[in-house]
Design a protein around this nucleic acid. Sequence first.
DNA 1: AATGAATGAGAATTCATTCAT
DNA 2: AATGAATGAATTCTCATTCAT
Lengths: 213, 213, 213, 213
Amino acid sequence: MSRELAKEARRRQLIEATIDGIARKGFTELKIADVAAEAGLSVGIVNFYFKSKDALLIATFKHLVEDYEQHMQAILAKAGKSAAAQLDAMIEADFARTHANRKQVTVWYAFWGETRWRPEFLKLCADLSTSFQKATTETFQALIDEGGYQGLDAGLIARGFNAMIDGLWLDMLLNPKQTDRDTAKASVRAFLAGLFPREFGSKAAPANGNAAA
Amino acid sequence: MSRELAKEARRRQLIEATIDGIARKGFTELKIADVAAEAGLSVGIVNFYFKSKDALLIATFKHLVEDYEQHMQAILAKAGKSAAAQLDAMIEADFARTHANRKQVTVWYAFWGETRWRPEFLKLCADLSTSFQKATTETFQALIDEGGYQGLDAGLIARGFNAMIDGLWLDMLLNPKQTDRDTAKASVRAFLAGLFPREFGSKAAPANGNAAA
Amino acid sequence: MSRELAKEARRRQLIEATIDGIARKGFTELKIADVAAEAGLSVGIVNFYFKSKDALLIATFKHLVEDYEQHMQAILAKAGKSAAAQLDAMIEADFARTHANRKQVTVWYAFWGETRWRPEFLKLCADLSTSFQKATTETFQALIDEGGYQGLDAGLIARGFNAMIDGLWLDMLLNPKQTDRDTAKASVRAFLAGLFPREFGSKAAPANGNAAA
Amino acid sequence: MSRELAKEARRRQLIEATIDGIARKGFTELKIADVAAEAGLSVGIVNFYFKSKDALLIATFKHLVEDYEQHMQAILAKAGKSAAAQLDAMIEADFARTHANRKQVTVWYAFWGETRWRPEFLKLCADLSTSFQKATTETFQALIDEGGYQGLDAGLIARGFNAMIDGLWLDMLLNPKQTDRDTAKASVRAFLAGLFPREFGSKAAPANGNAAA
DNA sequence: AATGAATGAGAATTCATTCAT
DNA sequence: AATGAATGAATTCTCATTCAT
């Protein structure tokens, strides 16, 4: 069992090296030798722990996806239970310095650029997206219900909300000087303020979990 | 002159072949031989018209950017002059079948995946983004002024608007079954409706240029 | 006939361009396009006047050989008839600024580097060398006879004499700063002075044709 | 350490294969594949041990130069200490069957044909030539002093001596049927006999180190 | 388990030659 | 005759994968 653990640790080490490698050199320029160097190991070892470079890339993307999901769930569990608090926590998490940092986003977009032609990537993306769309739709529906809003389609709003976050990531990546984390968060909140003035309007109480009702 | 024209036509032909090739095989899997085959020409010709594969890719991205800009300007010129009509035209253009089609978006994201490590790509992206951010900010400002809205930041709204469109493209790419053009457009309008109920609310008159006041 | 002349002129033009091209870029780096550019013509024309690049190179080497022979014969015809005067003229001709210049020597050595594997080059070299060895042997024999020298082998001396000139060319090529024309000529004469002190010793009358007996 | 040794041995093996390859096919016709085949290795290995074909050629030329220098020094160390004995040993060494063989000379001239346009080659040539010129000048000066000769310029004689050897190599290369080793050596000695009759004249004692006075 | 030398298929690039204009 | 765009075979270089140690 400790052997299994060691094996898992090595795999993890190589996956981290792959993420660092992509962040440093880009997806197309990443060589097995780069991964090995990044991990401080030999090239032979990569093919020992992963059948092929492709398998390593798939494992890496899977890791990225799982890591994102876990991180988000942890954030949401800690946040206040109200729909507004949950949304606020999501925004914070998505633009947090720890996970939505430049390196991670860089790597996400590198993978997305390739996803279209890689069925394994596509499946991971679709699953993540579906589960997220479902979760955010439920949260927005709760917000609508709690707030007594009329004529709002939680599904459309959730889709736009998630899309805006992805788009702002891209913006931060391509124009770091013009778009920073705070601008991105303010942008999202500006749109939510239009739809949910009581929760996100400028005069709304901050929607964090600790806020008094 | 006819020779000059022919030369330009060949360059264009190869660029189109590159776009088709990326759409068909992906960025990393695109070979010079694929481009040549796509164009019905020999491999040698690619290095005759473009010094290298890299130069071809840069020219292709530049073409994509210029094409997008021209297309958008043409659309806006034809649209009604009111801010709402202009925004509406933008949304339509961004999700039009002719330009924001699957092939084009696929190729855009393929390039974006690489952009981070290619200074030439980065420059093109940053310039396009800046000019767009400026134009949309002006339009939103006009909308705010025309509509007499209070407390809205046109810059933040423009940024979120553009980001949402990019993010919805990605969504359509990765989850074609869940997100289609109409859903995407409805999503954008749902958010605008919150901020600008008179122009984009469900009871608002359609914001096209021909609409009576 | 004028057409034939024009044709010959074009061939000559291309051969000169080839020599200039080799002198400028080297044998292995010389491309058909370089020859064309050097001649101010198009690439197509080269294959029109010469069957192939190889044929052009052979014609160029042949030209070099014939040119050298003609030049040398002209020099010898003008020189004094005594053996010493003839040898002196040879030395002057071999290190003359007009023919044994840096460009020419450069090209000769470029060809010699390839000669071993090119039967056509080899034949030209062997023929030139044989005819030269014969001529210089005769001249040295005349010098021996005229001077009443004993125990000298004209053939060996001729061979060493010709070899020294080739070797000095190489030296001038590879070490231009250490070996110049005058040093080279003095070197040859130093050796001849040992064998033929009366004609080439430091107190010998200059062996040119105009010298009084 | 054994790994380091193996690495050096492989480099040596590839350099030898390059020399053999040039001797067999010529400089311009030598392909990486030929070198690999000659060494009994795969093509990839060449770029593994040498960054490029060019680097391999430079290393090969360097090896040739160093090998020649070492060989000559060894010969001179074994020879008698008198200037005449040293010169005699040089002549023998330069036309020895082991080092100045057809293969080696062929390759030297192949490199010399290219040297003019390759700064790295040029440097190696110039350094070798300078060191040789210096050494032979000293030897000739000693010969002059020992023999009490008057009016001889050791520098000019050394230059002519070295040039004659290079030129005779070329002659042997281009006209193998007319010029052989013995003829070449006799040629050199004929010239030395003129300048230094006591040491190299036909009646002089053989100048080897073992000869009695 | 780990290494890194060795392999060889694959790709970009070059360039002599051809040929339509 | 002359041009230069077009061809495609040939070559160098790359790099994922293998395997002996």
